[in-house]
């Protein structure tokens, strides 16, 4: 399921699961509905739009990510309801200077170098582009 999610993200599609019982969209996908725990789920494509709810500029990275610092990790609330984690595609100085919470973003996928513990050969990160 997660491999499909990231491969589709690289193809420009944000995939989630819509619950046929309660209508909730769960994204990224999970084996049960995030709201009612049901298993009656249908694969759907989300709009890819949302807004920033929190973010942090990371200066000290884990092993395997050091070359990427500083980078901005963000939590985004998608228009369909789910929250996802990714990276905000923004100048670090701007992220420190301005309050970017509430800004509209569009999600796309970007491939980064793999690392020893990650369970996919390629490491795909949801990127948030400000719109």
């Amino acid at each position: 399921m997660f491999v499909d999610f990231f491969n589709e993200l690289l193809n420009g599609r944000l995939i989630g699961l819509k619950c046929l019982d309660c209508g909730t969209v769960t994204c990224p996908p999970k084996s049960t509905c995030d709201n009612c725990r049901g298993r009656n789920l249908e694969r759907v494509e989300l709009s890819g739009y949302g807004r920033v709810v929190s973010y942090t500029v990371t200066y000290v990275a884990p092993m395997g990510y050091e070359k990427e610092v500083p980078y901005v990790v963000a939590l985004v609330e998608l228009d369909e309801g789910p929250w996802i984690v990714g990276r905000l595609d923004v100048d670090v100085e701007k992220a420190e200077r301005e309050n970017l919470i509430g800004r509209r973003v569009r999600v796309y996928g970007k491939e980064f170098q793999g690392e020893m513990f990650y369970p996919m050969e390629k490491r795909v990160v949801p990127m948030f582009e400000m719109v």
Partner: peptide
């Protein structure tokens, strides 16, 4: 460096750690 990565194994292993999120993060 190893310590920060080791701590990050306590995050979601596919949907959080890939972003370079850390515990201070």
């Amino acid at each position: 460096s190893i310590g920060t990565r080791a701590l990050a194994t306590a995050l979601d292993g596919v949907y959080e750690v890939n972003t370079g999120l850390t515990f201070p993060g």
